[in-house]
Design a protein around this nucleic acid. Structure first.
Lengths: 190, 190
DNA sequence: AAAGAAAGTGACAGATATGTTACCTTAATC
DNA sequence: GATTAAGGTAACATATCTGTCACTTTCTTT
């Protein structure tokens, strides 16, 4: 150590998250980042060669946090409780879900570091996928989930429906309850 | 008339669409557009002051085409057929749905023309919404759709689920059939 | 064939993002 | 207190996008 840093890694990640959600991948720049951190742009280059290096590293960080939370799905042994847990988690981590989509825009063609990070990220996605895969399998084995529905669709419904904009500001609890109901039993009167 | 144009409005729209889907709103530039059209960048400025003017106009064009198709929903008088029509339409016009989301990124703060176009676009969205609103109302009146489900969610499910990525390339027919089944009756065994 | 008008071009200036680097600052270590 | 090394800054060169404008090209009209 020689001199105290003006910004921590956490600062970097926090502000990057805000900027990513606001401007998207293409709109994210070191200029904006430096301005929001009240540091000079050059300081960031002491740690990262380009934005892809920073962002791919940050995505790994977010993904690891998410996977840790997701892992708690194994604390529940009935499929129904796991289902509730998963949908609730997705709603809590709605922003993470936005970020994950932005993460796919990072090109893995630039520096070596980015390539390595992208590989790590792919690995984490695979881990997530396997975790969820076994969740779906169990649902089908317990004869709760219809077996003829593609696994991808089971997960896709849970992942996509959290993005439905709630323009009329229906209370979150009611909103989520309705989503769960539709996924479970549909929106048609039986 | 004085001289033949090297590019038609259709050319402009077609290439803009490709670029928008590939690079998103922020990544869309007149430079890219000119290059793909094999014309000079300056030529585009003869018709549009900036990209927002072009894009907002283009979005109106796409939206009008879509609304014309959507209007055919009234050719069906049973709710169930309308439902099938709507889901099928959304799948045919998947790209249009991507574009619509990108369209929301156009700032309505630049030139007067953009403001006017944005208003027109809002109007078209309202028209679409009302059209769909009456579809949902009918479904509830016919006691096919559960009345306690928020209207926004009924539409949201139809609009969002078409975005679920079909990575494993399940045949479209089977895919769409499963989506319809889940929306209607859920993914849980009854 | 001359005049006029719309279409298109290329160059210019301004703005902003990107990497790099010489130099300054701060704090720990000797 | 001098040395060392990491942290930070500001300026520079480069690249790209933007908007404008004088000029050229092409076609129609007279």
């Amino acid at each position: 150590m020689a001199r105290e840093r003006k910004f921590s890694r956490e600062d970097l990640y926090r502000v990057s998250k805000q900027l990513l959600l606001k401007h998207g991948y293409e709109g994210f720049t070191f200029s904006l980042l430096a301005k929001d951190l009240n540091i000079s742009r050059g300081a960031i280059y002491k740690y990262y060669e380009n934005k892809d290096e920073l962002l791919s590293e940050y995505m790994i960080y977010e993904m690891e946090i998410f996977l840790n939370k997701l892992d708690k799905i194994n604390n529940y042994n009935s499929f129904n409780k796991q289902f509730d847990f998963l949908v609730d988690l997705m709603f809590q981590d709605q922003e993470m879900h936005q970020l994950r989509k932005i993460g796919f825009e990072i090109p893995h063609t630039t520096s070596e570091t980015v390539k390595i990070n992208s590989d790590t990220l792919s690995q984490l996605h695979l881990t997530m996928y396997k975790n969820l895969q076994s969740f779906v399998s169990q649902g089908k084995k317990e004869e709760i989930i219809k077996t003829h529905i593609p696994d991808e669709l089971v997960l896709g419904f849970i992942f996509q429906t959290i993005d439905i904009p709630n323009h009329t500001h229906i209370p979150q609890e009611k909103w989520i309850a309705s989503i769960k109901e539709i996924i479970r039993n549909g929106m048609f009167v039986q």
